[in-house]
């Protein structure tokens, strides 16, 4: 009888694979007596019952898609039955579609952040455009929605790029995010004031700027000057 190279047990004469570990059985193989008390492989009988990360993602995506579809159909059906046509249901429909993209795209493109962003970035703009255009006219999207979305997406991209090119990640990432928050506040107040006040001036975002930028600067200083070169224990020794 042939001997399995892993399990070292004799398997049936015609077996081409070990029934236990599925290792190939080569004809005429005769291993010497085993030297180890335990096999080297880590193989548990119930391993086959666990899903791989990819399989888990697929199951999740299927469930999420089914739930989203059911919710969308229910909303559409209620609107159509009550009003005789589609009116308010278009808003939740657009929201469900965007939610599916926001959850589904990262699930499908797991581990590829730039690809995820390249799909979700335009999708966010399209979602805002759709929300504004559902009533038949464009009101707030060109003046408010578009610039705010572009500012936020630009800041997210900027933070992501700066963090990813940083060779040693640590407190500097917090500093980059803090700087991003400051910029986002300034951008938000600028767009709001231009739209509603008709002129450019900063109030609360100036406070965020004054508090946030020195904090970010301090964190950059700690990261690049102190943590890198000196022991904190020595520096702050009492």
């Amino acid at each position: 009888m042939a001997l399995c190279p892993n399990c070292k047990v004799e398997v049936g004469g015609s077996a081409r694979h070990c029934p236990l570990c599925h290792a190939a059985i080569e004809a005429g193989e005769g291993s010497p007596a085993p030297h180890r008390a335990y096999p080297e492989h880590i193989l548990d009988p119930e391993d086959g019952d666990t899903l791989t990360p990819r399989e888990k993602r697929t199951v999740f995506l299927e469930l999420f898609t089914a739930c989203s579809l059911i919710a969308a159909i229910v909303v559409l059906a209620i609107n159509a039955l009550v009003d005789g046509r589609l009116t308010w249901a278009l808003y939740p429909l657009a929201s469900f579609s965007y939610l599916w993209l926001a959850v589904g795209i990262p699930t499908i493109l797991s581990g590829r952040p730039w690809l995820i962003f390249s799909v979700l970035g335009p999708s966010s703009l399209a979602f805002l455009l759709a929300l504004d255009a559902i009533d038949g006219s464009l009101d707030w999207f060109p003046s408010l929605g578009l610039p705010l979305a572009l500012i936020f997406e630009g800041i997210v991209v900027g933070c992501g790029v700066l963090s990813s090119i940083s060779k040693r990640k640590g407190i500097n990432v917090i500093a980059i995010v803090l700087a991003g928050v400051v910029l986002a506040s300034i951008g938000l107040e600028t767009v709001l004031n231009l739209n509603f006040q008709g002129r450019l001036f900063l109030t609360w975002s100036a406070i965020v700027l004054v508090a946030g930028l020195p904090s970010a600067g301090f964190l950059f200083y700690v990261h690049y000057r102190i943590v890198n070169r000196a022991s904190l224990r020595k520096l702050f020794h009492l």
């Binding site: 399990c7 236990l20 335990y38 880590i42 548990d44 009988p45 119930e46």
Partner: peptide, 29 residues
């Protein structure tokens, strides 16, 4: 069924998932 032995015995028996609560493993002799 008889199952393969592992380097680390006694682990990964998921009792609450409808499996058998015992297993027979073979390695060498």
């Amino acid at each position: 069924k008889v199952s393969a032995d592992s380097k680390y015995p006694c682990l990964n028996m998921r009792a609450r998932r409808g499996h058998f609560l015992f297993r027979v493993r073979a390695y060498s002799s």
